[in-house]
Amino acid sequence: MNCRLGCGACCIAPSITTPIPGMPDGKPAGIRCIQLDDSNLCKLFGQQQRPAVCGLFAATEDACGKTNAEALWLIGSLEMATSA
């Protein structure tokens, strides 16, 4: 599956525990990444400063569903199930 450009769910729903430029402590789940632009595209895509975890994320129907709203719900649910 290819990413839906402008979705941004993977940059909002999960927590990221590694530093992100502009967010040195990473980001909590449900908080929009500072590197996500107004079109929900990553400003760091393809750049060395992009966190490794972001580059490892692969869009799949199980994680991203069929809509952006479903992606936020699915990724958020995965985050909740795996944190604690």
Rank of each mutant, 00 (worst) to 15 (best):
C42T: 08
Q48K: 13
P14L: 07
A71C: 08
T67S: 14
C11V: 09
F45D: 14
C54P: 04
T60G: 07
R32F: 11
P28N: 12
A29M: 02
I12N: 01
D37H: 14
D25H: 10
P21R: 06
Q35G: 08
L56C: 05
Q35V: 10
L72A: 02
N2W: 09
E70V: 10
E61D: 13
L78P: 00
L36A: 06
E79W: 06
L41S: 10
G26P: 09
I34A: 15
M80G: 01
A52Y: 06
C3T: 04
N2Y: 08
A84E: 10
I16G: 03
G46D: 04
A13F: 07
A29W: 07
G8C: 02
A58R: 15
E61G: 02
E70N: 08
P51G: 09
R4W: 01
C33V: 10
N40K: 08
G46Y: 01
G46W: 03
G76D: 01
F57D: 03
Q49W: 00
S39F: 11
I20L: 08
C10Y: 04
E61R: 12
S83T: 13
S83R: 15
G55D: 01
P21G: 08
E61Y: 04
L74P: 00
I34T: 14
L74Y: 04
T60I: 04
C64L: 13
Q48N: 13
A29E: 05
L72Y: 05
M1H: 12
K66G: 11
P24D: 02
E61I: 14
C42K: 05
A52L: 13
G76I: 05
G22H: 06
D37A: 12
M80W: 00
D25P: 00
Q47K: 12
T82C: 08
M1I: 14
C7L: 06
L44T: 02
N40F: 14
Q49M: 11
G30W: 07
L41V: 05
P19W: 00
F45R: 11
D62H: 13
R50T: 05
G26I: 03
A69T: 09
L44M: 05
G30F: 01
S83H: 12
P14R: 04
A9S: 15
P19G: 04
P21V: 12
Q47C: 04
N2Q: 13
A59W: 09
L5M: 12
C33G: 03
G26T: 02
A9Y: 05
A71M: 06
S15P: 08
A58Q: 15
C64F: 14
A69Q: 11
I34N: 13
C42G: 03
G76K: 03
G26H: 08
C3D: 04
A58W: 11
V53Y: 01
I16Q: 11
A9V: 14
K43E: 09
Q47P: 02
M80I: 09
C33E: 01
L56F: 11
P24F: 10
A58F: 06
M80C: 03
P14M: 04
G65C: 09
G30I: 09
L36R: 01
G6F: 07
A71N: 04
A13I: 13
R50G: 05
N40M: 11
C42D: 02
A29H: 07
S77P: 00
L56D: 12
G8M: 01
A13L: 07
Q35R: 07
G76V: 05
Q49D: 15
M1K: 15
A63E: 02
S77I: 00
N2S: 12
I16T: 09
P19A: 10
A59P: 06
L78H: 12
N2K: 15
